[in-house]
Amino acid sequence: MAEVIFRTEGITKVYETGDVKVFALAGVDLALYKGELTVLLGPSGSGKSTLLNILGGLDHATDGRVWFEDTELTDMSDRGLTKYRRDHVGFVFQFYNLVPSLTARENVQLVTDVSPDPMPAEEALQLVGLEKRMDHFPSEMSGGEQQRVAIARAIAKRPQILLCDEPTGALDSTTGVQVLEVLRDINERFGTTTVVITHNAEIQRMAHRVIFFQDGKISKTVVNKTQLAPSEIAW
């Protein structure tokens, strides 16, 4: 059994809007394992993104406890969370979130400049197949290329964990597959624990572990014995 990298105990997240309380997470107990590629599946509003944000140190749980390895994230200060994100976590979002005034290379350098042990920005871009587009601005690239820059930016710091929120949500299927290929490649090559949120049930077939969400709770967990290559997935 692989080593546990994330552990949560009864975490809840409540959003209060006026008199209405919305339970985004209603008591989640979870363990994620080092080196695995986990897919979180579920309908909109089932709590996937909320969980990912808490794991990534972007948000605090209302109740319950969270650990990253031996470090408890539950009540960590803002400054502590910033350092945690900087040192350990890579994020990939649906809408890329590149800085429009920086070229691909410079977007990656944003991260390599502040990380303790980064890979060169050029190497990260090479890994995602963009070695020829390094000096282009986001406005000069396609969606898939922009997402690959975002992945290069996420992995350049050699993170232990890569958190991806709907990374293919804004892409067509061919481009989406390319992006998934990159994610799998990183996961295999560096053993980076990868969590991918998706609506797309097909993507579960490339995961080591699939966690299903429903109404803020985990409805079931499936461990895949074999994983398909992204190119074998179609949607």
Binding site: R79, T82, R85, R86, D87, V89, F91, V114
Partner: peptide, 16 residues
Amino acid sequence: ARELASLRILGFGKGD
């Protein structure tokens, strides 16, 4: 806002 928030997520401090 979005750009600056991305930087915070990437691990930039408030000062940065």
